[in-house]
């Protein structure tokens, strides 16, 4: 049989990120990835920086190096990433272990899926994130 040429139509990394007519859970997934990678980058540097204290170097203490406004702002971003990643992670732990998604049922049009069942959890997660962000912002600005 002659080999028929095919065009590889895989979306690639753009397929993780590109917005089409996608739903809110997909954006939650994208943000979870981005915040996770951001926190990991911070965390690896954080281990190195805090380990320096055994040499008597406290980069973060007093009015040292880490107190420039740009670092304060980036710290807030890390906190925001943590707030989102933690709240959304809580939802994911529940959902991915099969809780809060409902039982299998006879599909009757218009279909209600597990997405609809876990949606209130997502809303709670969003409010929790916003609450944490507000507390963090208040704290950072009043300090």
């Amino acid at each position: 049989m002659a080999e028929i040429k095919r065009y590889d139509n895989r979306l690639g990394i753009a397929g993780w990120l590109s917005g089409g007519r996608w739903g809110v859970e997909r954006y939650a997934y994208i943000l979870h990835r981005i915040t996770g990678l951001g926190i990991l980058t911070y965390f690896l540097l954080h281990i190195l920086v805090t380990s320096l204290r055994v040499k008597g170097i406290y980069l973060w203490a007093g009015h040292g190096f880490m107190h420039q406004p740009i670092f304060r702002f980036m710290e807030y971003l890390v906190f925001a990433a943590f707030a989102y990643h933690a709240s959304n992670g809580l939802r994911l732990v529940l959902v991915e272990l099969g809780f809060a998604i409902g039982k299998p049922m006879e599909p009757v049009y218009p279909y209600k899926t597990s997405l609809n069942v876990q949606r209130p959890l997502l809303v709670c997660m969003a409010f929790l994130t916003l609450g944490l962000l507000a507390v963090g912002a208040y704290w950072a600005l009043t300090k």
Binding site: W22, G23, E25, R26, A28, Y29, I30, L92, V95, E96, L97, G98, I101, G102, P104, P107, V108, Y109, Y111, T113, S114, L115
Partner: peptide
Amino acid sequence: YAGECSRVCPKGVDPAKALQ
């Protein structure tokens, strides 16, 4: 759990639920 499979399924199979 990006959930797209369940959102687009034309038969209401809800693959995301099955996978969880």
